[in-house]
C-alpha cells in the first residue's frame, strides 16, 4: 500500500549555524507557499517535522482524494478537493452539462429536463449522476 504523503514538496537550505530553512511548494503548480524560519534540530527529518507542523501545513490545502498538498489557487473549495481531482465548475451554469438545455432564471440544483445534478464537485462516479 502506498504511504500517505506527509508534507508538500520542499527544498531545504542549511545555514552555517546548523539551522535549516524549509521552502514548501504546491504539489500541482510548484508555487512557493511557505518559507520557514531557521529551525534547529538534530536531524533533517526532525527539523522537517517541526517546520511542517508549526508553519508549513497551515499554508496548504490537503486533498483527501489524492493526498496532495496544494495552494489555495489550486484548490476547489466547493468540492473540498484539489483542482486535479475536481476542476472548477460554472457555479451558475447557463446550460445543463448532460442534456444541453438552457437553464432559465435562478440556477436549480438539478436539471428540470433530465434530472442531472448540475454541480458534480468532482464526485460524479459515472455518466449521468441523477438525484
Amino acid at each position: 500500500m502506498e504511504q500517505a504523503k506527509k508534507t508538500a514538496a520542499y527544498r531545504v537550505v542549511a545555514d552555517s549555524g546548523g539551522s535549516r530553512v524549509f521552502r514548501f511548494y504546491c504539489d500541482i503548480s510548484g508555487e512557493l507557499c511557505c518559507v520557514t524560519r531557521p529551525i534547529q534540530a538534530d536531524t533533517e527529518e526532525a527539523a522537517l517535522e517541526i517546520a511542517w507542523a508549526t508553519e508549513g501545513k497551515w499554508e496548504f490545502n490537503h486533498c483527501p482524494q489524492c493526498g496532495k498538498y496544494v495552494s489555495s489557487a489550486m484548490f476547489n473549495v466547493n468540492a473540498g478537493l484539489c483542482l486535479d481531482c475536481a476542476p472548477w465548475e460554472a457555479e451558475f451554469p447557463a446550460f445543463c452539462h448532460q442534456c444541453g438545455v438552457r437553464l432559465q432564471g435562478a440556477t436549480p440544483r438539478c436539471c428540470p429536463i433530465c434530472g442531472a445534478r448540475l454541480l458534480v464537485d468532482g464526485t460524479a462516479g459515472g455518466k449521468g449522476a441523477v438525484e
Binding site: P87, W88, E89, F95, Q98, K127
Partner: peptide, 25 residues
C-alpha cells in the same frame, strides 16, 4: 491539465456532454 470546451475554452468535467457556459456540444 483539463478537458476544455472547444467553443469558449473553460475547463469542463470529464462527464460533461455540453458546455455549461456556452452550451456547445
Amino acid at each position: 491539465r483539463h478537458r476544455c470546451c472547444p467553443g469558449c475554452g473553460v475547463a469542463v468535467t470529464s462527464i460533461a456532454e455540453y458546455c455549461p457556459e456556452c452550451g456547445a456540444r
